[in-house]
Write a protein that binds this DNA or RNA. Structure first.
Lengths: 230, 230, 230, 230
DNA sequence: CATGAATGAGTGTTCATTCAT
DNA sequence: TATGAATGAACACTCATTCAT
């Protein structure tokens, strides 16, 4: 808990102000003065900490994104099954964006489509997170949990794309109120298309046994959709 | 085929130039002079046709989007099965963005996250297209083709979100070269999670017979997943 | 009443439109398009009749001013006394501006302080009118109607300045409703300071005494005018 | 004389530059660059002190006008007679415009006929000065110094109008060189029409005839004010 | 470390004016 | 004669950025 050097606090203060302002007004419509006013420092002070408005923008994700990734990685270690991991990743994404709406706006509306940002070091964390998702999928396939014939890249695109779409929708249209509640149904939907199931191959199983006195004809119906079921 | 009035041609000429320029440089980094140079008209001429730089931007989707939607609607009428319709929609989206990369850039990188745009009349076409997708899903459910317990809004988010994610990825990273090739696998993936199947109900059938010397454990594999199969 | 050539009508139509527009919006805030719209012609047409926006402006007073001067001159010929002439001039000025409020605005708010206008031929009419006033005053002095020691230039400045002040006041503040009603009191005020008198009224005293052989006719002149005198 | 804060000096510097430039070129024909060049600052600096070109214009009269009014008021307190006060006001007006030719140009050619200016707070000082003149006239009437039947508003219009006319004339035509020299004659002229005089009421004409047997002593009373009377 | 003050560089927008038809 | 279409030339205004204090 060693107090951060005062200068780090200042930096953080500016960063959070910038996040709020950029989230509210967009990058180009926000001025350095807007940010400095929000941060209660002078314009010039911002330049003591960041070399340009753009660098300020690119510094916003910083720790937040890294922490999100690291904590997610930590949790995943406790989840042996790929399906649970996917579920966890989705849940945490929604939770993360619910908790950090300004970060969500900056990430989704400003940074995601910024050609320069994807060349910045800060983008690495986003990339890492994306790789993590891919790895989980590939491991799921390798372990036989997921179907062999899926394209892991496509599955990842599907997971991340859906999340992004919903987050942007929430930012722009304000609904739904809680993204997190979409985590279960989304995980179900995705896993439905991905899980390898014996079942998948077993249809209308009709078993006839040679037991002469007893002819057995069974059709067992079991609901399979929920990933929560054993 | 009567030629458009000359003034309409001029407008179109400016619009296409703006599309190219905005796609290449982004909205804020592009100047009206950039556009006018590309269109081979003067700055002032642009203002004869559009009242502001922003109105110029918002006018870009215009016909293109509408036509895409209308043609898609026409085709869908010939496809009775919801699964085929979903497949068609996905395919056409990819094809559309493949064919119109500048339009794709403007839509995905500039307009999609523009708070003002979603209040413009031009946004209606985007909305209509989105509603069309929803309707197809709902009809699929109504007809029993899709599972009853899916959330059509979520499925739509999944379809559109994945497409958007892939389009943006292509724009920023340049790959894959042909989005259209992702249409089949994506449709498969989505439908996998959506199609109602008998099979769905028959799962993990493990039969243990009391025949002490013979334990029977059978798995009968029948391919059912592909939407191309009867 | 030979009809004016069609082209003259067009010109007049544009001129009156310009007068209205300039009166309402001022010269710089009015555009050629404003004028052309009011005149129901195209921008280009205006340039068929006037070589520039400024020339259009300078052409507005034109006939109106000349006619005002000519008619005034005509009337003055019927008024032998300088006092009545001054009165007439003032009355006609007020009446003129009451009748032509747009002309008043253009003259008083735009042209009067325009450095270029006073070099234009159209300014001659204004100058002529001003000279007319001066002449009347000088004649009044020459005839002994007005005091010898007035400065005719100053008196003219007083007459025209007061009129202008009142006209501008009416334009900007809207009151009084009828300038013309100020004509009598203003003429009184001016003449009060100008008329040769005591004298004026006291003099020309004709006394007839009954003394048959002696008719006495006296004119006593008493200087009363200067405020510096005891 | 403790120096004004540096920033006030800067503001004054810009204001005086603007005054010179606007006086010389007019408001619309002068550019911000003209002003900034004259003030030896950058364009942007002007906008640090004034929010728009128009606000800059409206700020020019500022102190100058207020000071003129205040000083005049102070002096008037020492002049008990209304006539002297009027004389003083006229003299000071001329002196003021003689001393501040750029201010004169801006006031007379630009501001006086500006519809927006008369709604600005800065216009209040002009109004106050105008009220002061009116008050002096009314007091003159109340004290019996001026004729009862004058219209104070008209007299004020006459004073201010004549001054304005002469100032504008000097600005545009360059003559006379010294307005101040017109103060005495103008005051005479105005007061002539305003002062209550014995004569005004009674012309105590005393005629003595040499008729030996009959001494005739007549006093003829004639109302003299109205010019309509014989 | 913090900032008040200053500005260079840039840009969207306007509009009087032209000219081919 | 009349004008639709086009534009050159300007200009007010903004703002990220700098630097002396």
């Amino acid at each position: 808990m060693a107090g951060q050097p005062k200068t780090e606090l200042r930096k953080e203060q500016i960063l959070r102000a910038a996040e709020r302002i950029f989230a509210r007004k967009g990058f180009h419509d926000a001025t350095i003065s807007d940010v400095s006013r929000e941060a209660r420092v002078s314009d010039a002070t911002i330049y003591e900490y960041f070399s340009s408005k753009e660098e300020l923008l690119f510094s916003i994700p910083g720790q937040t994104t890294r922490r999100h990734r690291e904590e997610t990685e930590t949790i995943l270690e406790f989840l042996p099954r790929a399906a649970d991991r996917i579920h966890c990743i989705i849940k945490r994404y929604f939770w993360f964006y619910d908790q950090n709406p300004d970060h969500a706006s900056v990430s989704m509306l400003i940074l995601k489509q910024n050609r320069k940002f994807i060349e910045m070091p800060a983008y690495q964390d986003v990339k890492e997170m994306s790789r993590l998702v891919l790895r989980v999928i590939e491991e799921g396939v390798a372990k036989g949990e997921f179907r062999k014939n899926i394209d892991p890249y496509l599955v990842r695109a599907s997971i991340l794309g859906t999340i992004e779409h919903l987050v942007i929708r929430k930012i722009l249209l304000g609904k739904p109120d809680k993204l997190e509640e979409l985590a279960d149904p989304l995980a179900d939907l995705i896993l439905q298309g991905v899980l390898a199931r014996d079942t998948e191959k077993v249809l209308n199983v009709r078993l006839t046994l040679d037991s002469p006195d007893k002819a057995v004809k069974e059709t067992v119906s079991v609901s399979t959709s929920s990933r929560n079921q054993g």
